[in-house]
Amino acid sequence: MHNPHIEESTPRQADLTGVLLAGGRSRRMGRDKARLFFAGQPLYQRALELLHRFCRHVLIAGSRPDLERPGLPSLPDRYPGSALGGLYTGLLAATTDWILVAPCDMPWPDARIVERMLTVRQGHDAVVPRTPDGYEPVFALYHKNCLGRMEEMLRQGQYRIYDFYRRIDIRYLDPPELPDGWQRSLVNINTPEQLARLLEEES
């Protein structure tokens, strides 16, 4: 069953590259999260469909030759082991000013959130959903302006995404601006127990 919200997206953006983040080690899951089956398809495919809706070009940040296909390259992280390193890999490789990033473990990515991020991005370096549970750094928009600050931190061995956010002009999307059902849309699958619970809810 496909996510119905993906079908409602706006036309592809010429200045936007899609970046699927798939360089994590899935420690808590104990196996590759990207290839977990959820609602009849590999989990990564759900995020990939959303990225293709908005972006003419899509790439994978992380060494994932098993997920590659024509027009979908995977790029080893230059600074592996962190979300910031994955964002840097994608942003450096993109030929557009902006990237839209999505993780490989999000079962219900919502195009309406992307549409809202796109409407408020002008004049900012990044647009990131922010909820009472914290930031959503891996389902967000980033501009090439971020590259210098990212590289500076990564070269110094600093990987905290929240420290990076203090160094850029960031626009947060708070719950009043998010569409109904955003709590479900921003779920990531991290453990076998969580996967089993969500599969039961979906069935």
Rank of each mutant, 00 (worst) to 15 (best):
H2P: 15
I6V: 15
R12P: 12
R12C: 12
D15N: 08
D15F: 02
D15T: 02
L16G: 03
T17Q: 09
V19C: 03
L21N: 01
L21H: 05
G23P: 07
G24Y: 07
R25V: 15
G30W: 02
D32L: 13
K33V: 15
A34C: 04
L36P: 07
F38A: 11
F38I: 08
F38W: 04
Y44C: 01
Q45P: 02
L50C: 05
L50R: 01
L50S: 08
R53Q: 13
R53A: 10
F54C: 08
C55H: 08
I60E: 04
A61Y: 07
A61I: 05
D66P: 01
G71I: 02
L72R: 00
P76R: 06
P76M: 14
P76Y: 11
P76G: 06
D77T: 09
R78P: 01
R78D: 14
Y79V: 01
P80A: 01
P80T: 06
S82K: 13
A83H: 03
L84G: 06
G86R: 06
G86I: 02
Y88C: 03
Y88I: 00
T89N: 00
T89I: 06
L91I: 04
L92D: 09
A93W: 00
D97N: 09
W98E: 08
W98L: 02
W98V: 07
L100C: 08
P103F: 07
P103N: 12
P103G: 11
P103W: 06
C104R: 02
C104A: 15
M106K: 05
D110S: 10
R112G: 09
R112Q: 08
V114Q: 05
E115S: 09
E115F: 00
R116T: 04
L118F: 05
L118A: 15
L118Y: 12
T119R: 03
V120R: 08
V120Q: 04
V120L: 08
Q122Y: 06
Q122C: 12
G123W: 05
G123Y: 11
H124G: 14
H124W: 15
R130K: 10
R130Q: 13
P132Y: 10
P132M: 12
D133M: 14
E136I: 10
E136C: 11
P137G: 15
A140W: 01
A140S: 15
Y142D: 12
H143C: 05
L147F: 02
M150Y: 01
M150T: 05
E151A: 02
E151N: 04
Q156Y: 07
G157I: 00
Q158H: 03
Y159D: 13
Y165N: 03
R166H: 08
I168F: 04
I168P: 13
D169L: 12
D169Q: 09
R171G: 10
R171K: 10
Y172K: 09
D174L: 14
P175I: 04
E177D: 10
L178M: 10
R184V: 05
L186T: 10
L186H: 06
N190K: 11
T191W: 02
P192K: 12
E193Y: 00
Q194R: 03
A196H: 06
L199G: 13
E201N: 08
E202K: 02
E202M: 06
S203P: 04
